[in-house]
Design a protein around this nucleic acid. Sequence first.
DNA 1: ATGTATTTGTACGTATGTATG
DNA 2: ACATACATACGTACAAATACA
Lengths: 240, 240
Amino acid sequence: MAAKYEEIYQSLLNRIEQEEFPVGETIPKEFDLMEEYACSRDTIRKALQLLSQNGYIQKTKRKGSVVLDRTRYEFPVSGVISFKELASTMHGSVETIVTCCELIKPDEKMKVRMNLSDKDKLWMIERVRKIDGESIILDLDFLNATIVPGITKEIAEHSLYDYIEKELNLKIGYANKEITCQKVSENDKQLLDLKEYDMVVNVDSYTYLTDTRIFQFTRSRHRPDKFRFNDFARRTNTFS
Amino acid sequence: MAAKYEEIYQSLLNRIEQEEFPVGETIPKEFDLMEEYACSRDTIRKALQLLSQNGYIQKTKRKGSVVLDRTRYEFPVSGVISFKELASTMHGSVETIVTCCELIKPDEKMKVRMNLSDKDKLWMIERVRKIDGESIILDLDFLNATIVPGITKEIAEHSLYDYIEKELNLKIGYANKEITCQKVSENDKQLLDLKEYDMVVNVDSYTYLTDTRIFQFTRSRHRPDKFRFNDFARRTNTFS
DNA sequence: ATGTATTTGTACGTATGTATG
DNA sequence: ACATACATACGTACAAATACA
């Protein structure tokens, strides 16, 4: 059962997307929402804060909360989501081909990167992501096998995050990503439909559990013309 | 005067950076922080929420708030900041050359993009950013002159945001960015030290005031080898 | 495996401050 | 200058998760 403020967040989000509250208009004021949802102001404010954080509304004193226009910049949205989840929001046909899925002994670099002890082993999983029949993205994943045991090719084909969260009951907490641009490697050339491009967009992700253990490092290589990253950010650190 | 929770946020941040609270350890529990800062739990929780949002701590029930390691991925950090502010956190020498700063009549595309009426004019500002003597970034800015009047070459050389916030007293609210990869243009070739690269990283930013008016569109072209973007994201939408 | 204590999470209430139309 | 809507801050109570006995 989700918290009340999360349900109110979802409800308001739906109402915004159904255009009950159109872009440019204000949603009802906090006091009215309190009455409507029969809860305290605190709870309403938490829901509104989520809307604000995620770029759906802008709050101003006196005026209220104005609905922002998010239609222009939809996805891929910044966040910790799997390719499966991302794909579910996309239009074209999507396919995953597992080109490698094996247990390896980590090298020194990876030991440092993933904070491994001497006995820890790693799953190395390489996957090609095809969009509308073209090989666009090459994902190379390393997972700490002590934390995430029992990976199979089927799981890698379907969804790692489903397995980790639903089967193993681990809680994924947060991730750091670094986006850079790099020359193509021989491997890129072999596995991706690169056309004439000689560079790829490289996304390195370090993903952690809520208990702060790192369990995954991903190196994701994107064909440059198909790469797009959207970011919503506020000027200050406050909750406004 | 900043809010109390913001001061506590800053104080805790300093203490983390001074390693009074080392990476991997917990900071004092909420109840102790309440006593130390002589405030309510609500206020402490707001401060901790900021730390959590910005990737400094991870909170877990029963255990407390663990300090995360942010040394690996420092900047450029995601957010609405000016080049001047970004440069102040960097090591090398930094220089801005204004190659264009004039008032223009917007074309149709720009009118839609920036939500302009027929009488609105635009400032068009082109700036080359040199880092350690090399021309690395080419910024092309369009500012709504009705909202932001009186731009001069000196302001463009120094800091637009300083002028907008401090002189004009406007409140910058939020921005949307879209990162893509594109072929170099003739203009890129002329103004940047591109070496052999035939692509650039393109960052389009739409920047808004807190009253939701868009006042700026920026197209920023980066030499691919010098581009880096870091992102911190949590798995869920909650405050944890 | 079980229970208990501890720490954070959610929710409610109230009062006052602050920006702004 | 005023009324309004959000912002901050204080307090209380109980729920949920989990480390540890």
